[in-house]
């Protein structure tokens, strides 16, 4: 059974997806094209569904049962507000890549319950990663101010997520405290090119 020490990580991930889901609706409707705006709203439903699933799982590990009315306050502050579509796509990519790294690490426990709880979510997250990754590759290849805005957002979100993943690694123990953060950076670079992250001193 997944250790109760994972419950904080799952709840924090749920908070991040909860906040991201809201932003996908608030900012997503201002997408550059109608199809993307519709896709953003559809993915908002997906993110909120993942959040609900993760909250229930976290509560199960804690042995409690409570109604979910709002996020628990663990969401990263960089996810609470997005100025534009560029920042939103970077967040969508970063949160889902981080979620995939974290859930794959959990699946290494090789428990049937963990595998069954994560299978459908990982398939849906792959689609969100594909969508956001395509837009991020486009931003990088654009002209004018867009590549600079993209790079700034990518560094900012990646820094915040790496710091969070290091904290999760430190809390759950059992490995190098750079494991998940490094895995996150590697996956992000495979999807959208070089990522500059500040490393802890």
């Amino acid at each position: 059974m997944a250790e109760p020490s994972w419950s904080n990580a799952l709840e924090a991930l749920a908070d991040n997806k909860f906040v991201l889901g809201d932003q996908l609706v608030d900012v997503g409707i201002s997408a550059p094209e109608l199809a993307s705006a519709l896709a953003a709203v559809a993915m908002a439903q997906g993110e909120l569904g993942h959040a609900r699933h993760l909250y229930h799982w976290s509560h199960e590990l804690q042995g409690i049962s409570k109604e979910i009315r709002a996020e628990s306050g663990k969401a990263l502050s960089v996810l609470r507000h997005h100025e534009n579509w560029i920042e939103l796509m970077v967040s969508l990519l970063a949160v889902n890549v981080a979620a995939r790294v974290l859930l794959e690490r959990l699946r290494q426990l090789n428990e049937a319950m963990v595998v069954s709880k994560t299978a459908k979510m990982l398939v849906e997250m792959a689609e969100h990663i594909t969508f956001a990754g395509e837009w991020c590759r486009r931003f990088r290849a654009e002209t004018g101010a867009i590549p600079g805005l993209f790079q700034a957002a990518l560094s900012r979100q990646s820094d915040a997520i790496c710091a969070w993943l290091r904290a999760v690694d430190a809390e759950i123990g059992g490995g190098s405290d750079m494991d998940m953060a490094n895995a996150f950076v590697r996956e992000m670079e495979m999807v959208c090119g070089p990522v500059t992250v500040r490393h802890p001193a």
Partner: peptide
């Protein structure tokens, strides 16, 4: 129909739109 700037995006639009 969908319109997109890449094959991967077209597949995503189709999956999300025609659900």
């Amino acid at each position: 129909f969908v319109e997109a700037f890449s094959d991967a995006l077209a597949k995503t639009y189709a999956n999300l739109t025609y659900d």
